[in-house]
Write a protein that binds this DNA or RNA. Structure first.
Length: 662
RNA sequence: GCUGCUGUAGCUCAGUGGUAGAGCGCGUCAUUGGUAAUGACGAGGUCGGGAGUUCAAUUCUCCCCAGCAGCACCA
């Protein structure tokens, strides 16, 4: 204390002002020295950019920023406290033998992983939430102590907190383990902090769900119970968030796919899509669009077999590395004997597999005939139907299926062509995403991992080629050291949809391995054989997934060129039926995907059904007046206005507006 | 694959130890209407599958399957 008065330190604030304090001053004391109201609102500080507790003493000159709840950082700290202090303490109160693992914040909330002796139910969740409220109302002060490794270990051992013991024992540091308590409640948690100074600052919170989660994310380790929650500054924010969740649910492609009659799934073919006429219309439009794009970009389209002998998969390396994801089929005609085994033992001598990827087959096409360096690059594209035996728990609507079609292509080129090809690809990808309504693309460049094939000179060239391409295309990207595949560096593209979720779709992967394994070669300028570099690339990734993303991004209201039904002609009265048929015929003639609705229903009913449920972009409403005047009353999706136009003009406009972007 | 929850009519869901109900949709009839649900009547279910307990199971128990949420996986 005496020393504190002797030594002075300089504290600098974000606005540039600075003040002197005695060494050892705390954030709280500084806040109090500025204004009482500030001290009241402060929940933590940032010392030279590092978040600290308000109670932490500061001994050296430093830049200091006070964190209040109104900032993003403040909100996150509050959530962290709700998880680590409120939720954890409530759990320990109700289930004293529960073992706490970790409780971080996540986007919009937090979770805590806990080991319970028996399974939790949703009623338990309510009980825990109630207990949390009770604790919250005590406004308990949160007190931190710093402990040595041995003290921390013994404190948690005493309490049977095996996971905390493991965390402390595994830590690099020897001292300064931060233990947080709430007075003499007996509750202790290990935490990197910072925390709110007291529970008084806690806003509103709600526990959302429980789920399993592996300890340390490792499927060979114990499965813990993860409790998810959300916390906000006030009820209004919470309600907004809950509303947003509801909105997201309404966009769920599985729900919309059902309502809009696009596709279905069923038991007998789990993980594979039954496309209905309307859904397949979207699919076909998508495929046709990409086909035009690829043709224009110098790709040659091919089609390769579905079922391929395992000898090829052995050669390509898939048999060794990817077999557990492959559907394997014996190459034998099943026995006609009802009672006998379907296939003989010998059937397993010759196995085939449904292709999980197209690449080995594409190399086979490349390998036909002798290629000259003058032939390169060769770009082979395929709407390749792949089967992957995905873990059952991974299947999810169109987003994760067992049979899907990739907009796949492989580019075979010389090393000196890598950059140009990468630039062309990035440009094409950007253009396509933009056409499809996605401007926000997150790009990650994954660089060489520790175990890899190919020499460093080649990796240098390849990584630099990809980097250059990204810079040239103006795509912002981050670089992930060591994240590349063993066979080459790659670029992953994630698109962000209308409600902020990201989806991995496009990819560009260099492959130095497969051409070697499958002995692909070309004759160089020097007359000698050389290995081509192979680029795996996809833009949509899988047609299925991308359509799922499109449905959710547009909440079912697909752009006109993709809409399964572009226009419905709906009558107001039976007396307009003949005219409606005429308009419908003209629409079909003009190439518009139209439907005719002359059912004996009121116009209100028809409008609701085609708009709210069917998401049809255009309604041509016709009654006696329109029939008389040869017009249609146009109602566009999402608009309450109607415009009356001559039928010919309306159809011409529709034809114009329904043109695909390319 | 792991943890938890769920599975009843085409869809969304209610319900019960004594073999089922609503709304929407579907069919028929009436109604001919002017922009987000016209009315009446009717048809429609092995209550996910299998086993067990019971006089009796859709209901209780166990096993399996599938769906959902999350985890792991997605070179």
């Amino acid at each position: 204390m005496e020393q504190k008065a002797e030594q002075q330190i300089q504290i600098t604030f974000p606005d540039g002002a600075s003040r002197e304090y005695g060494a050892g001053v705390t954030g709280m004391e500084i806040a109090e020295s500025i204004a009482k109201s500030l001290a009241k609102a402060s929940i933590a500080v940032k010392v030279d950019g590092v978040q600290r507790d308000l109670s932490d003493p500061i001994f050296e000159d430093a830049g200091l920023e006070i964190i209040k709840l109104d900032s993003d950082e403040g909100l996150e700290i509050m959530r962290h406290t709700v998880a680590a202090q409120l939720l954890a303490r409530a759990v320990k109160n109700l289930y004293p033998d529960a073992k706490l693992a970790i409780g971080p914040t996540i986007e919009n909330g937090f979770y805590y992983d806990v080991e319970f002796s028996k399974a939790l139910s949703s009623e338990d969740l309510e009980k825990i939430e109630k207990e949390m409220r009770k604790i919250s109302e005590t406004n308990a002060r949160i007190v931190k102590s710093l402990n040595s490794k041995s003290d921390a270990v013994s404190a948690f051992k005493e309490r049977g907190e095996d996971y905390k013991v493991e965390i402390v024992e595994g830590a690099d540091q020897e001292d300064d383990f931060q233990l947080y308590t709430q007075g003499d409640t007996g509750f202790v948690d290990l935490c990197r902090g910072p925390h709110l100074p007291s529970l008084k600052h806690v806003g509103v919170f709600k526990l959302m769900s429980i789920a399993g989660a592996y300890w340390r994310g490792d499927s060979s380790k114990a499965m813990l119970t993860r409790i998810y929650g959300t916390a906000w500054r006030n009820d209004k924010e919470l309600q907004e968030y809950l509303l947003q969740l509801e909105e997201a649910e309404k966009r769920d492609h599985r729900k919309l796919g059902n309502e809009m009659d696009l596709f279905h799934f069923q038991l007998e073919a789990q993980g594979s899509v039954f496309w209905h006429p309307k859904g397949f219309t979207v699919y076909n439009q998508m495929e046709a669009y990409i086909r035009r794009r690829l043709n224009h970009a110098g790709y040659d389209e091919i089609k390769t077999p579905q079922l391929i002998d395992n000898k090829l998969w052995e050669k390509s390396g898939h048999w060794g590395k990817y077999r557990e994801n492959m559907f394997v089929v014996p190459d034998e005609i099943p026995s006609g004997d009802d009672d006998g085994p379907v296939v003989s033992d010998k059937a397993f001598d010759k196995l085939m597999a449904l292709k999980p990827m197209n690449c080995p087959a594409h190399v086979q096409v490349f390998n036909q005939g002798i290629k000259s360096y003058r032939d390169l690059p060769i770009r082979l594209a395929e709407f390749g139907c792949c089967h992957r035996n995905e873990p059952h728990g991974a299947l999810h609507g169109l987003m994760r299926v067992r049979q899907f079609t990739q907009d796949d292509a492989h580019i075979f080129c010389r090393e000196d062509q890598i950059t140009d090809e990468a630039v062309m690809f990035c440009d094409l990808l950007k253009a396509i995403y933009s056409d499809l309504g996605f401007e926000d693309v997150a790009v990650a460049l994954s660089l060489r991992p520790e175990t890899r094939v190919g020499d460093d000179a080649l990796w240098d060239k390849a990584e630099e080629g990809l980097r250059k391409a990204l810079v040239k295309t103006g795509l912002e990207f981050r670089e992930d050291e060591g994240e590349g595949a063993f066979y080459g560096p790659k670029i992953d593209y994630q698109i962000r949809d209308a409600i902020g979720r990201t989806w991995q779709c496009g990819t560009l992967q260099l492959d130095f391995n497969l051409p070697e394994r499958l002995d692909a070669s070309y004759i160089g300028e020097d007359g000698a054989k050389h290995r081509p570099v192979m680029l795996h690339r996809a833009i949509l990734g899988s047609l299925e997934r991308f359509i799922g993303v499109m449905i959710e991004n547009y909440a079912g209201k697909l752009p006109l060129w993709l809409a399964p039904v572009q226009c419905v002609v709906a009558t107001i009265t039976g007396s307009a039926d003949d005219y409606a048929k005429e308009v419908y015929g003209a629409l079909k003639e003009a190439g518009i995907r139209a439907e005719l609705d002359i059912r004996n229903e009121k116009i209100n009913y028809k409008v609701r059904e085609h708009s709210a449920v069917g998401k049809v972009p255009n309604l041509f409403v016709v009654g006696a007046r329109e029939a008389e005047e040869k017009t249609v009353a146009i109602r566009r999706l999402g608009s309450k206005d109607q415009t009356v136009e001559s039928t010919d003009a309306a159809i011409a406009a529709l034809v114009e507006f329904s043109k695909p972007p390319f």
